Computed example of a mutant assay.
Amino acid sequence: MKNLQSILKEISEITTDIETNYPELYRSLDENPMTIATSNHPHVDKVAMKEYLESLKELLKHHL
Rank of each mutant, 00 (worst) to 15 (best):
residue 30 D to P: 02
residue 31 E to W: 06
residue 51 E to I: 06
residue 21 N to S: 11
residue 59 L to Y: 07
residue 14 I to G: 10
residue 31 E to M: 10
residue 15 T to D: 01
residue 11 I to L: 11
residue 35 T to I: 05
residue 53 L to R: 09
residue 7 I to D: 08
residue 54 E to R: 08
residue 16 T to E: 13
residue 11 I to S: 01
residue 34 M to K: 07
residue 47 V to H: 08
residue 62 H to D: 15
residue 32 N to G: 00
residue 30 D to A: 15
residue 21 N to D: 11
residue 34 M to G: 06
residue 49 M to T: 01
residue 41 H to C: 09
residue 29 L to Y: 01
residue 13 E to S: 03
residue 27 R to V: 11
residue 15 T to I: 04
residue 33 P to Y: 10
residue 2 K to F: 03
residue 55 S to M: 10
residue 7 I to S: 07
residue 31 E to V: 01
residue 30 D to N: 15
residue 5 Q to M: 05
residue 4 L to C: 05
residue 43 H to N: 06
residue 12 S to M: 05
residue 54 E to L: 08
residue 42 P to T: 04
residue 36 I to T: 14
residue 34 M to P: 00
residue 9 K to Q: 12
residue 8 L to N: 07
residue 54 E to M: 08
residue 25 L to K: 00
residue 59 L to P: 04
residue 36 I to K: 12
residue 60 L to W: 03
residue 27 R to Q: 15
residue 24 E to N: 14
residue 49 M to K: 08
residue 58 E to D: 08
residue 6 S to E: 12
residue 64 L to M: 03
residue 1 M to R: 07
residue 55 S to F: 01
residue 62 H to L: 15
residue 46 K to T: 06
residue 25 L to S: 02
residue 19 E to L: 07
residue 11 I to F: 02
residue 15 T to P: 03
residue 1 M to W: 00
residue 24 E to P: 01
residue 33 P to D: 12
residue 39 S to Q: 04
residue 1 M to A: 11
residue 10 E to R: 13
residue 37 A to G: 06
residue 7 I to E: 05
residue 56 L to P: 07
residue 48 A to K: 11
residue 29 L to I: 08
residue 38 T to E: 14
residue 26 Y to P: 03
residue 44 V to E: 02
residue 33 P to I: 12
residue 40 N to L: 14
residue 25 L to R: 00
residue 7 I to C: 07
residue 24 E to V: 06
